[in-house]
Amino acid sequence: MNIGSIAMGAGFLLVLIGLWGILTRTHIIQIIVSFSVVDTGVHLIMVAAGYMHQRTAPIISEGLAASDAPSLVVDPLPQALVLTAIVIGLGVTALMLAFALRIHEKNDTLEIKNIERLRW
């Protein structure tokens, strides 16, 4: 069990917790928070995917010549991906909050049970 596995496991756990929140909380803000938890869990999973034991950050410097990089650095790609994913998550969350404001204005409530629905 190294730190990668721990991060991976924690990521999955966070996703589960977030899902529980999304499916059981009835307040819209709480649902949004739960969604952020799920998102964070996924980011953790992504970072863990790039983790390699006893390697260093993928930055060439005095201590790390370009030629040694393949054997010394962790996988840089998941880090690039997680950056993108985080920003996307941020945008989505902000937009959800904006929707929450609008929902409150239209329905005078933030309880997901009470907002008007389309059915069948």
Binding site: D39, F99, I103
Partner: peptide
């Protein structure tokens, strides 16, 4: 507005599946 919110969370969940 109500639909938009559900849509966002739903597509968010699908993204999670996709990302994993």
């Amino acid at each position: 507005v109500n639909t938009g919110f559900t849509y966002m969370v739903a597509s968010g969940l699908i993204s999670v599946v996709l990302l994993i």
